[in-house]
């Protein structure tokens, strides 16, 4: 059952009046709306959703990251219901999928955004509320470079520790270890042509 997002939003605004919350509408066929949470109150929002008996979001099934070099693209797929000022620069986004196993409600989609993609890439960790976030936040730290404040063991999980890049970012450039392609085309052809000896 999809969660009643306006009702949850109203509850959250009563319980946490200081938290900045935005209802984001999904114009796609799935119509899966989401809730944009300001990073400062992400922990409190998760704690409230987890502890409130009428909501009872006890399962964090998925945490993933998105790299948005162009903020306009983010606003196109997650449209703010009330008018908000668009972000000035690109940012990284972390998406959480919450479920209530007892009430059979979900997924409740939470989004949290960093200030930019370079220096201010901090998001508070939700490991204290949802233990299942521990490995997934490490993966996002590894592949996107989001730094989770308060994570108990924030290190790389897939790539080696000495690695410096974040491979899932849009501007990641893979090392040029090109190998022979029998029928190159498109981007592979462009890459192959740099290696042609004419």
């Amino acid at each position: 059952m999809t969660p009643d997002l306006p009702a949850i939003l109203a509850r959250l605004r009563v319980a946490l009046p200081a938290a900045t919350l935005t209802h984001l509408r999904n114009p796609g066929p799935s119509g899966q709306d989401s809730l944009l949470v300001a990073p400062d109150h992400l922990g409190a929002v998760c704690q409230f959703l987890h502890d409130t008996a009428e909501l009872d979001f006890d399962l964090l099934s998925n945490v993933t990251g998105i790299d948005w070099p162009e903020p306009a693209q983010a606003d196109a797929v997650a449209v703010p219901v009330e008018g908000t000022t668009p972000a000035a620069c690109g940012f990284l986004e972390v998406v959480y999928h919450l479920y209530s196993t007892a009430l059979r409600v979900g997924p409740l989609v939470l989004r949290a955004r960093t200030v930019d993609r370079v220096n201010q890439v901090h998001i508070p960790s939700v490991v204290a509320v949802y233990r299942s976030a521990e490995l997934q936040e490490r993966e996002i730290f590894d592949l996107y470079g989001v730094e989770f404040i308060g994570h108990p063991d924030l290190r790389r999980i897939l790539m080696w520790d000495e690695f410096l890049d974040h491979p899932m970012r849009k501007d990641y450039v893979a090392p040029d270890d090109y190998q022979y392609e029998p029928t190159p085309h498109d981007a592979v052809l462009e890459k192959a042509q740099q290696h042609y000896t004419v």
């Binding site: 090109y178 190998q179 022979y180 190159p184 052809l189 042509q193 042609y196 000896t197 004419v198």
Partner: peptide, 12 residues
Amino acid sequence: NPPSFTRDASAS
């Protein structure tokens, strides 16, 4: 070692 092959870049 990487295979070295000659291919006309303009022909492809």
